[in-house]
Design a protein around this nucleic acid. Structure first.
Lengths: 230, 230
DNA sequence: GACGCGACTAAGCGTCTGCTTAGAATGTGC
DNA sequence: GCACATTCTAAGCAGACGCTTAGTCGCGTC
């Protein structure tokens, strides 16, 4: 079986070991930059996804030619279509895998504490660090959604809604317990997620701030925005 | 003289009357959506810029054909090149006019008070409201910068640096006066601007929040992020 | 009413696009 | 050593792309 990936292949969920680094060299950094892609795939398909992420992030989906993606993966122009049904399917798979990774990171962070303040800090700093570490992937999945078909876009929207609901609930819990002071829970949720998503736009690996440092800063800012009494 | 707009035409600065609305009807809303474009231009050039903003915002720069922009302006495909030297020049003019408008709005807001807390609130809520009201334009000028030539991109970067410097200075002033508690001024400035820019990504005119309401919310959040003692 | 001039168009240039087709190469099972 | 499936490529199709060219149109000037 196998053949090119098409939408209706329902792939199961996988365990993602959280990636933690400290003082890594260049080849480790490169491995890490591709660690978002933890699905079991044919080597050529994996190379295509990685090449597509790099190209889409650098030039945008529409400005990227399938020939360029093929070349990055060491294939001829036609080689793409052995593994993926279309250029859009490539984008969809990147978006799906990327969003699944984010959701898992968010769930893991939320599981660390039931206390609203600790949970909010953990969740926001985890999303922030993910967007910083995998900023190329994050750029593609956050800014190229318009290039997806309507069907695919609504699949992705479902995953995004889970993250939104978790942050909103954490704020609401904190208000209920008296730990937070939030006059506009909906608007503040929007602002918090907005803050973390925009990291994908400006973050450069060459900058001075490590993903974890940025996560810590944003975790603190989130507590301030929530009016945390501490 | 005249002829197609090219980069080396140095156009002077203009006064932009701030646009304030309350209870507007549909045609007023449409006028308002185009109020970012307050330069004196030949009617066809104006229609081209407006059509280009709509098309670029909806589909992205690279996915937009010059034929589509021409059609929106009621011209033939070749008509574009009577007024603009290239598709990139069209993007650059949009970016330039848009950024000039933002800078003026920021300057006007900053001029309303010397007191750091009031100034921060005024500046952040003004940038936010601008990004919400002119969200189509804001989307183009914030997310299509990579499509500009290097020369044009660095022109735009100069305008953006002014906004960044003003916010950073306001935070630093507040820290110096004891009004703010900001452990990381550089990082908090980044977060504040990030918050306002991302409005362009998610804001829809059909949503429930008016630009000014969102500005007020974000102005309050900014004071919290700055650790304002109030 | 001839002239000049800027605004505009019909047609088309060379190139690039996503994707298909027909077939070669490679590896596996028996 | 033959059959089969899979991976891949060379070649190319039909259409779209940004932009140019040659020329028409309508208007203000004298």
């Amino acid at each position: 079986m196998s053949g090119p990936l098409r939408t209706d292949d329902g792939a199961g969920e996988l365990d993602t070991a959280p990636v933690i680094e400290a003082g890594l060299d260049e080849s480790e950094a490169r491995d890490l930059a591709e660690a978002w892609l933890n699905e079991p795939l044919a080597p050529a398909a994996r190379r295509l996804l990685i090449g597509a992420v790099e190209a889409f992030a650098a030039r945008g989906y529409h400005a990227t030619a399938t020939r360029d993606i093929a070349a990055r993966a060491g294939l001829s122009a036609a080689g793409v279509y052995v593994h993926f049904a279309s250029k859009e399917e490539l984008l969809y798979q990147i978006s799906l895998i990327g969003h699944r990774g984010t959701v898992q990171v968010v769930r893991a962070a939320a599981a660390r504490s039931d206390e609203p303040a600790q949970r909010l800090r953990a969740v926001i700093s985890a999303i922030t660090a993910w967007h910083a570490r995998y900023h190329t992937t994050a750029r593609v999945i956050n800014y190229e959604m318009a290039a997806l078909t309507e069907r695919h876009r609504s699949d992705i929207a479902t995953l995004r809604r889970e993250i939104d609901a978790l942050v909103r609930q954490t704020l609401a819990d904190g208000v209920a317990s008296g730990a937070f002071d939030v006059p506009d829970v909906r608007g503040t949720t929007l602002a918090l997620l907005s803050l973390t998503i925009d990291v994908a736009r400006w973050f450069r690996a060459s900058g001075t701030r490590a993903p974890e440092e940025l996560g810590a800063l944003y975790g603190d800012l989130a507590l301030r925005m929530a009016g945390h009494r501490g």
